[in-house]
Amino acid sequence: MLAALLLALVPWGRDERWLAVPPLLVVAQGALVALNGRAPLLAWGRRLFWLMAPIFVSLALVQGLFYPGARTVIWQVGPLSFKREGLLFATLVGGRLLLVVGAFMVLLTTTHPADLTAALVQVGLPPEGAYLVLAAIQLLPRMQARAQAIMAAQQARGLALEGAPWQRARALLPLVGPLVLGALHEVDERAMALEARAFRAPRPKTSLRTLHDSPAQRLGRWLLVLASGIVLTATRWPR
């Protein structure tokens, strides 16, 4: 739960003086994950890297080379000229993004979705909302397996999945059709399973998963909100 609070740690600094902040804070996030052990830290780092690397490369190329109005060339590679304004913009956006994404990943690697939804229900999310999230997460593997089975079945009926673009486009409906029709057909039973367990009973529900929210955590949350407010004011105040 504490992890969620890191989201507040997003400084919206707008000039070069703030460039060093995001990396420092991301290291802080890493330290927080490490409290949960080495494996989560590695998982967090690896996922963060693979998620952000293509975006960084793309940012550097697109904005470094083509940032509108940029003139100051700082690095010339053959016909390509990287410009200062573009790279600065890329670094700012990239740093900000890294922080937000990093914070989200802290939340995801340390908190199980079930705990997260249970916590959200405790603070007022309708149980139906929690159901939607968890059911989707748990349905995914089964539906992926079905997609595989459908591809197998339709190929066995002579459907070619390779060939000219037109031919491949024609294979779309025989694959999407069974996926959707079959899934809609099952919706009835899934709805009945919910009804059979009194999910729509018009009375207050209880919950087995209760989460502890200590005074220290509450204090921490308020401090973070305060800190963000200060950062925001400090960076936006007239200079």
Partner: peptide, 8 residues
């Protein structure tokens, strides 16, 4: 289909 999906 009888697993609610709402619990783990």
């Amino acid at each position: 289909n009888q697993m609610s999906g709402a619990r783990l």
